[in-house]
Simulated assay, not measured.
Amino acid sequence: MNLHGLRLFYKVAKAGSVTVAAEQLKISQPAITAQIKKFEKENGIKLFLPQGRGICLSEIGKHLIKEADAIFKIEDRMETLIDNYKQGKNDTLKIAGNYLSTNFLIPIWVAKLKQENKDVDIEINTLNTENAINKLISYEVDVAILGSGAAEYADKINSTKIMNDDLWFVASSNHKYANKTVSLNDIMLEPFIMREDGSYTRRLLESICYINSIKVPKIELEFNGLHEALMASASGYGVTFCSSIAAKEFIEIGKLARIYVDNINLKNEIIICVRKDEEETNLVKEFMSVIKA
């Protein structure tokens, strides 16, 4: 079926006049009339009945206008859907992040995004760096918020630095080293509470020991979550090496205290990752703008 001819018939029938339809569509009246006659001839039907002024629909014309109305309403909805997608509206933003970002950073950013675009749906996945990158490059998520450990995947992703996060040694406020400065040797003799093997901070702690030819501390407790590790340390047992972003709240309420270690001043970069050499969607760009703001 010639949808162009059907559309012109629909517009004329709705406008009640070829003249009005021509003005609305910015097409000449003869061109509209010719296309409608062509549509009638192709389908062996008559859409309009002879009448003095104005138009009068034939029986098939009356039935056809109802069906055409349904078709073009769907077309309008599809065009709106496409426009909204281009503008980042009525879409789903899928985010992957490590434990730090999904618990302390992303909730703030997505709340701001929802304030600006209430129709967007948001999915957040807490994953380790490797799994987050794999989901990103396999199109299961749209963007990932990770730490410096993501740098080793530079061949697969494009990344933008958001901020620096200091890495601190912390322990219970009652710990013997609380708020004191100690040597690296001394702190490494303490029992440690850490994230699971393979986490970025744990690998970094091991690297510090290796570079300084010091034995790796004994990990007495191990947790898959940073919050759990901090809670255990705050209870009075063990030292944790972790993000300052995560530890600050505990320090401010007096549950944890920082331990200053000679010549150790390390930072972790927080970065936003997208697929390499791919144009971001408007929704991803909007999310990145919220973060940068």
Rank of each mutant, 00 (worst) to 15 (best):
G5Q: 08
K11M: 01
K14C: 03
A15I: 02
V20M: 04
E23I: 01
Q24L: 14
K26L: 02
Q29M: 08
Q29V: 11
P30V: 06
T33P: 00
A34K: 15
K37W: 02
G44Q: 14
L47M: 01
L49Y: 10
L57M: 00
I60P: 01
G61S: 07
L64Q: 07
K66H: 04
K73E: 14
D76Q: 15
M78H: 03
T80P: 00
L81V: 07
N84C: 06
Y85S: 12
Y85T: 11
T92H: 11
G97T: 09
N98I: 09
L100I: 13
N103E: 13
L105A: 10
I108M: 05
W109C: 01
A111R: 15
Q115H: 11
D119L: 04
D121A: 11
I124C: 04
N128L: 12
E130R: 14
E130K: 15
E140V: 09
V141L: 09
V141N: 10
A150V: 14
A150L: 09
T160S: 11
K161T: 11
V170H: 03
S172I: 03
S173P: 00
Y177I: 02
A178P: 03
K180N: 10
S183F: 06
L184T: 06
N185Q: 14
I187Y: 03
I187V: 13
E190S: 12
I193L: 04
M194L: 13
R202K: 13
R203W: 01
R203V: 07
L204T: 08
I208N: 02
Y210P: 00
S213K: 15
V216N: 10
L221D: 03
N224P: 07
G225W: 09
H227A: 00
M231L: 10
A234E: 04
S235L: 05
S235G: 14
G236Q: 06
Y237C: 01
Y237F: 09
V239G: 04
T240H: 06
C242V: 11
S244M: 03
K248T: 11
K248N: 10
E252K: 08
G254Y: 01
K255D: 09
A257V: 01
A257H: 06
V261L: 05
V261H: 09
D262E: 15
D262K: 14
N263Y: 11
I264M: 05
I271L: 14
K276A: 06
N282V: 02
F287C: 09
